[in-house]
Design a protein around this nucleic acid. Structure first.
Lengths: 334, 334
DNA sequence: TTGTAAGCGTTATCAT
DNA sequence: ATGATAACGCTTACAA
């Protein structure tokens, strides 16, 4: 139906090779023939077929994005960062939501491989063996964004979660708190779960506070669980809480209010992620900023280098995090 | 490098046609040869090349998604709805962020066309002529999600924005308010801007309240603008406000607090969208629920029908909205 | 400078 | 039931 390079060639009375040449404005084509071809293109309404081109040159200028859930709070920002850089380098993006389900992850990698993506950016709490194996089967360049495989074989971009948690808790300690609770991510999550708990422990121990397992309650990044977790921590009489996400921090604050206590007057809270919610919630929430956009942008930049076979300075990029002090730890009071 | 259908054929000592047959488990292939081919596939580690396949069958099973900004509050949910249905029908998704810039919209449509997507779902406040023209050039099936072209030539899925705004304001009127302000979207946005203002006007007029243009202040869906808009409305002594988005409602509430007034005690607020923020913010925000996920899901379903050339019952789907009453209009008080 | 033709990896028609 | 082969729309040696 739509015009092909052949139609243009016929119209311009040249060979398809010549048309191809002006299309890729390669080689030296006479201005005159170029003009003829350009006109023919216009006249026929010709649109190049990227599929055919990709099949020939063995490059699609397309990359795959594997994301747990594009409708959650953290990932849209990461994806935006990826997209912006991808657009700069003329890459298009396949979006795949996995809900962190292993079979979906594997299946999507296979589909992406079959669709001949030039590279893949993978996100998800844990990088399973089956996922790693599938990557290897297709031999496609991969960058891990906000996560890491246990053998660190794949390039990755993330923050230092342990250090970030450490900083958050250390800040609470500097505010003279002794009984500091934590609402954690899931225990099976090596990054957002365990690493942050590790940082929490380290901060306590380095400052001579004994670690009490009872004060770490799993919130699993769910507001309902976090709310309940906070109620439990209240029973243990904590005077400060570090929540592994802003959502959970907000839920915790609600639980505190609903128990007729106040933040920051009675209890201090620190969240994690510096999402929108931490700025708009009242009290505004002290939090750790994860540079979500940058994680995406740097991951994509790294991938472009991989694809161009440029030398990589650093396989495992650690981006800086930042403690942002707000009302939930008493900032703004005297 | 990676095995092709030829390698498999050679390995299994059959023709490529036969391999293709077992791949598409079409036609009748002897169990014996099928077995041989299957083994050859395993042995060679063959992965089909979807590009070649698509080039041949003229279908990519890929659709393009054109979105203003995936990192904003509303769209991730829509996209998730699209993705879920797309996955059910084995479609993959190209994600394109436009920031509502005309040139980006047009360029992405062209790229999607060249990459031979089977269809496109378009989102954005306004559907420009250049966009429509580009759609036509490529002749690719299109569904508009959450928006509409002025001639209604393209299928669309959305809510009745005017009616939704009407319902919101009518509810405020039912609470005995007389001086009702509005923080609106941008005036150049026919859907989220003008239609909602229209609903606001209609509700007032139908209930014998004179419409006062001063009481409609543009917030442009930006929290900072909305904050300032609310300060202005306070000067005009409004006793209730309808904000065209939850973000703006939250910002308005902050402005009210910062002016030493209280919500809902002194002023009632209604938002729009039923985003996460309206549930977690305190006071929780009365709002209009736009079924974002459903808009996405229904759009994608509609597109699958278009692609399968199934008959379409309704070119312009209106999904139900809902008023959700929360604390910002005094719910929960006596 | 331009044209011819092979090939990218499939599917599908037509023989056998 | 299976095999040859043309075709999908393009790029790119190699020739002319």
């Amino acid at each position: 139906m739509s015009a092909t390079i052949k139609d243009v060639a016929r119209e311009a009375r040249v060979s398809i090779a010549t048309v191809s040449r002006v299309l890729n404005n390669s080689a030296v084509v006479t201005d005159e023939t170029r003009q003829r071809v350009l006109e023919a293109i216009k006249k026929t309404g010709y649109k190049p077929n990227a599929l055919a081109r990709s099949l020939k040159i063995q490059k699609t200028h397309t990359i795959g994005l594997i994301v747990p859930d594009i409708s959650s709070t953290f990932y849209p920002e990461v994806v935006r960062g990826i997209e912006d850089i991808a657009a700069m380098y003329n890459y298009n993006i396949f979006l795949c939501n996995t809900d962190q389900k292993e079979e979906k992850e594997v299946k999507y990698i296979e589909i992406l491989g079959e669709k001949q993506v030039d590279g893949i950016i993978f996100m998800g709490d844990i990088v399973r063996d089956s996922v790693i194996q599938t990557f290897n089967e297709f031999g496609v360049p991969v960058v891990l964004a906000g996560t890491q495989d246990k053998d660190k074989r794949f390039p990755s971009v993330m923050i230092d979660n342990e250090k970030a948690a450490y900083d958050a808790v250390k800040y609470l300690i500097s505010l003279e708190h002794k009984r500091i609770g934590m609402i954690s991510g899931p225990m099976h999550d090596p990054i957002g779960g365990l690493q942050r708990i590790e940082g929490y422990k380290k901060a306590l121990e380095e400052h001579g506070i004994k670690y009490d397992p009872e004060l770490v309650v799993e919130g699993e990044f769910k507001t309902r669980k976090a709310y309940l977790a906070m109620l439990k921590l209240l029973e243990y009489k904590v005077d400060a809480v570090f929540a592994a996400s802003d959502d959970m921090a907000a839920a915790a604050i609600n639980a505190i209010f609903d128990s007729n206590l106040k933040v920051p007057e009675d209890i201090h809270i620190v969240g994690f992620d510096n999402t929108y919610i931490s700025t708009i919630f009242r009290p505004t929430i002290t939090t750790i900023q994860q540079p979500a956009y940058d994680i995406g942008a740097v991951s994509m930049r790294l991938l472009t280098k991989l694809l161009a076979k440029e030398p990589i300075e650093e396989m495992h990029v650690i981006l800086p995090h930042q403690l942002i002090v707000r009302e939930s730890t008493g900032f703004g009071e005297e």
